[in-house]
Design a binder for these strands. Sequence first.
DNA 1: TTGACAACATACCCGGTAGTATGTTCATCT
DNA 2: AGATGAACATACTACCGGGTATGTTGTCAA
Lengths: 221, 221
Amino acid sequence: MTTGVRDISVETIEPPAEGTRREILDAAANCFLERGYSATSIDDVARRLGSTKGRIYHHYHSKSDLFAGVFKTGMDMNYHAILPEFSAACPPGEKLVRMARTHTRQMIQTRAYQRAVWEGVSMHLRGSTTPEQREALAELQAYRDRYSELFKSVIRECRDAGILDFDNLSIANQIMFMSLNSPLFWYKRQPGEKQADLNKIVDQIVSFALRGLGFQGELPK
Amino acid sequence: MTTGVRDISVETIEPPAEGTRREILDAAANCFLERGYSATSIDDVARRLGSTKGRIYHHYHSKSDLFAGVFKTGMDMNYHAILPEFSAACPPGEKLVRMARTHTRQMIQTRAYQRAVWEGVSMHLRGSTTPEQREALAELQAYRDRYSELFKSVIRECRDAGILDFDNLSIANQIMFMSLNSPLFWYKRQPGEKQADLNKIVDQIVSFALRGLGFQGELPK
DNA sequence: TTGACAACATACCCGGTAGTATGTTCATCT
DNA sequence: AGATGAACATACTACCGGGTATGTTGTCAA
């Protein structure tokens, strides 16, 4: 709404606002990561920013709106990372592996945002909140469902090709995501954070998930 | 403390108190399941019981104490179910499968309690709450860690026997639990709830997890 | 120069919630 | 019968947290 106005300015589209919003989202995501949504107060986020409520409420209408911002940003990053892999022309097995690796790496590298996505999904599955904001959550949920469908379609393709072997597709997809998302809950960034170490962890997770789906043989690449 | 006093009474040890406590715990567990810990108020639990706060505070000192009761009860049920399997004299592969089945069935059948256990672990991994109640959480966490160790030891035994194949033991254990716990988040009890249907779901989950750990061949039984 | 507006900070309101203090009832023991 | 205490209900307090209303400051355009 208000953002459309300053499209006149040359280059650096809305540099202050977008930077500020991102800064607020980062703080909010980390607060949600540490204490969860309902245990986090707006003042907590403001404290982390070194400012006050006013700054946050100037950019976001409500707490749930702020949360939605974190959720959507997290999913945006996921889409940005996964769509190239999904659209690539390569055999379904290899595609699934690449998508799984990318997704898992996302869970680790943008952990705070992804944790909010997780909690958002959990919140939606429950019956809580008001009907109005329940609708907003439903929209976000749909956004995340579409993402899930990307994997589901590839998994189905793999099964049809005889690469995978499982019973119920939806359940298989659920458990696979559960496995790939697991670092959300136990991963701690180590002091000597080598890129190779991270890849090793990602590989083990992806290996677990793919094997779980009935994948045989060694993983490509 | 207070329970030790009435050990004098013959049979039916503390029948009213224990029944009442269990009734309160059930209500609390379901509230925590639906809205999460911090979003649940004591009045919510009381409403579900058809009574008032007074009843709850008569049996539990605080909200966190009530939560601890739910957590511990959930873990007690897990131990009660898993210890016979763990102590049984049978080859490690078969033992692991039986333990995994039992655990997964527990996740489904006592879902509300187990969800609280989950949230308790998550809460502890974060930095929240006061130092005093943080200690109580740490104790519960240790209780749950011992349970996790039961699986870990069997998994290690399996790997040493060449039945399983994975890289890091701790990570493998984490992802396995993540898979087995997954119905906590997506399982919904169906109208026509046949025992056979439930077994089918459990089998698929266990099959996924065991394959993920590198288990080869068909599952026993 | 000045008005206008974005980007905040300050001050305040008010509903909800954890926890407490105080009844009330009923069963059991002496 | 009277006392005692468990098992609650009722009434109340204090505080926290979401949200709002109202300043304050810097910037930019005319």
